[in-house]
């Protein structure tokens, strides 16, 4: 219906201009700041990726696509790419699903609701470095609480972060843990927009709790889900500090995510041109992934 209104409205030139002016005014502050502090530096990175620079020397030679050649012929890059993709998929969807369940469970009057919400949100406010350090202790093969608990039920736990087979899984668990509270909040906020009358009507029709979740809540939450999927991929594709603290890419290179590769080259080896080419690489992959998700859901508009 409303499409009809706006379309018929936009036929008159004056109204059309007014809408465009409104859009311009509303967008202006953000675009100005983002232009200067996000878009310009993004181009700076792209340009820098064709140079070789250590950030100190005044000598900055142009090297063409040399950095990209090094990147794409490098086994380290492909290993990191694979690790990052696995990590991102597991963390994005793992946290999304658990976050949704928790949000739905807490979106009602139950005893201790506020307390639960705080407890689930604590990981989000705990600084990443502190979380990483603490989880390292929890995962400790001999003294860690996880293996201690497993030993009560006669299971000999693995060495987690120090075990080639378990390291990436362990890091992903922490990634999910840190993100559940975030997903919960976004879903809780979005659920506030869903009218209560809808459920009531469904219940009167005899729908079960699960049916309501499946046929009413999930479709209505799809803008939030798109938001969480895209930001999930963006955040986890660039993950760095958590892994840096817990494994620094180890045991050998099983958890060596792209963010670590970027950090090492940019901030430890000071190969800024090469680091920029990695940043551009991550950017390109994310752009494609987001575009696919976007097209797939029509920007979350089709719910």
């Amino acid at each position: 219906m409303r499409n009809l209104t706006s379309k018929s409205g936009s036929l008159t030139p004056a109204f059309f201009r007014k809408e465009q002016t409104a859009a311009f005014l509303l967008l202006f502050p953000s675009i100005l700041i983002l232009g200067v502090f996000n878009i310009y530096p993004a181009f700076y990175s792209i340009v820098l990726s064709f140079f070789e620079w250590n950030g100190f020397s005044p000598d900055i030679p142009f090297v063409g696509i040399e950095n990209y050649k090094t990147l794409f012929t490098n086994g380290v890059f492909y290993n990191s790419l694979l690790v990052t993709i696995i990590y991102s998929v597991v963390v994005t969807f793992g946290s999304l699903i658990i976050g949704l369940l928790v949000a739905v469970a807490l979106d009602r009057d139950i005893k201790g609701k506020t307390l639960y919400r705080i407890l689930y949100f604590l990981p989000v406010v705990t600084p990443t470095v502190a979380s990483g350090v603490v989880w390292k202790y929890l995962f400790d093969p001999t003294q860690g609480i996880i293996n201690t608990m497993l030993s009560y039920i006669n299971i000999q736990g693995p060495a987690w972060l120090n075990d080639s087979a378990w390291a990436l899984f362990s890091v992903s668990i922490v990634g999910i843990w840190k993100r559940i509270g975030f997903c919960m909040i976004i879903y809780l906020a979005a659920l506030q927009g869903v009218s209560a009358n809808l459920y009531e009507a469904a219940r009167i029709d005899g729908a079960t709790e699960f049916n309501i979740l499946k046929s009413i809540k999930i479709p209505l939450l799809s803008p939030a889900t798109l938001f969480l999927t895209i930001t999930g991929f963006i955040d986890s594709f660039r993950i760095f500090d958590l892994v840096y603290v817990m494994t620094n890419g180890g045991p050998v290179d099983e958890t060596d995510v792209l963010g670590l590769m970027l950090y090492r080259n940019g901030f430890e080896y000071f190969k800024l041109g090469y680091a920029s080419s990695i940043a551009v690489g991550i950017f390109g992959i994310l752009l494609i992934l987001s575009f696919v998700q976007w097209k797939f859901t029509q920007g979350g508009e089709a719910y």
């Binding site: 080639s164 180890g250 290179d253 430890e268 080896y269 000071f270």
Partner: peptide, 22 residues
């Protein structure tokens, strides 16, 4: 030398492969 930090990382990664029996 400037390259030392990178050399050090690469080196440790390779010897870890030996310690991990790879």
């Amino acid at each position: 030398i400037n390259e030392y930090p990178e050399i050090s990382d690469i080196f440790s990664k390779e010897i870890l492969k030996a310690l991990h029996d790879r």
